[in-house]
Computed example of a mutant assay.
Amino acid sequence: MQAAGRAVKSGARRLLGRAGFDIVRSGDNRGGVDDFLPFEPTMRAARASGLSVGDHIDTVMNGTPGATQSTIDELRALGVYADRPASVLEIGPGSGRYLEKTLKECSPDRYEIYETAAPWAGYLVETFGVIARPTAGCSLAPTPDATVDLVQAHKVFNTVTFLCASRYFFEMARVTRPGGRIVFDVMTETCLDPDAVRTWATQGGEGHGSYPAAMPRRACVDLFATLGCTLEAGFLAPMGVATTEVLVFRKAG
């Protein structure tokens, strides 16, 4: 068993080395999701619970069983997977809970990830055969223009600064092919009625860094409009003690 584990880690290290990553211990990695979702303890806890990693995070850590699947179900109902996207790019997949369910929905030929936490990136490459791109700032530079059918980010832009999110928005529009879709969630004013703000302020804990970060809905819609992307739909999804809004854009064909 130990030999098998070493082989998996060695294989993941070789794969990530080609993409500019180095697998290091959780306490020493470059940040990202591993700062608040440490790889090794999370994997041990998921195995002990008898759940998949994603279901463990939803059920045990977030206290919202089925939250990830409910978002996937909404996206399916909106027709996001109906065109069978052949290429998918995900920013900040972390534990892969949305990635795993997306793969089941559309079985793309290529799935790229941009993940700053090296242990999680290695796990996703080894487990799901995705392509880990080297991360730098808020850029998707390794991905060529107009080459991706579905670009997505889940529970990412609520954790970064306004400018970082905005820079990613430009990049997401750049890499999406005409007719493709862009899906992400942000904490808009729709999610921030007085009761929700009170709940965040009194029950949401200390947060970490910029989390939870708000983003004006109109700013998103207007910006993507200038980039040739039209808002198709929006719906609320659970996040922490309140909600976040998932937005679905289509790039003009």
Rank of each mutant, 00 (worst) to 15 (best):
E90I: 10
R97F: 01
E74M: 01
S95R: 03
M61N: 13
P65C: 09
T64R: 15
V60F: 10
D55N: 10
A67F: 04
D55P: 02
D55K: 07
S95Q: 10
V60D: 06
P85T: 10
A77S: 15
Y81W: 14
G94W: 04
T64D: 13
E90T: 04
L78W: 11
G96C: 05
A86M: 12
A82S: 15
T71C: 02
R76P: 00
H56D: 05
G79C: 12
T59E: 12
D73K: 01
G96D: 08
P93C: 06
S87K: 12
A77V: 00
T64K: 15
P93W: 05
R84Q: 15
D83W: 11
I72K: 01
N62Q: 15
G54D: 08
G66P: 07
D83E: 14
V80H: 05
T71I: 14
L89T: 12
Y81S: 04
Q69K: 13
G79I: 12
I91Y: 06
S87D: 04
P65E: 07
M61H: 14
D73V: 00
E74Q: 10
I91C: 07
V80S: 03
D83C: 13
R76I: 01
G66C: 03
V80P: 04
E90N: 02
D83P: 07
G63E: 10
V60L: 11
G54A: 06
T71G: 00
A86F: 11
L75Q: 00
S87F: 07
I57E: 12
T68I: 02
V88E: 03
D73Y: 00
L89V: 09
G96H: 07
A86T: 11
L75A: 00
L89E: 07
I72T: 03
E74D: 09
I72Y: 03
T71M: 00
G54M: 02
A86W: 08
G63I: 09
S70A: 14
A86P: 01
V88N: 04
H56L: 10
Q69N: 09
E74G: 00
V60R: 11
T71E: 03
T59G: 12
A82G: 13
H56A: 08
V60T: 14
R76D: 08
G96E: 06
N62W: 15
E90W: 03
T68K: 01
D55V: 07
G94N: 11
G66D: 06
T68A: 13
Q69Y: 06
A67N: 08
V88R: 02
S87V: 14
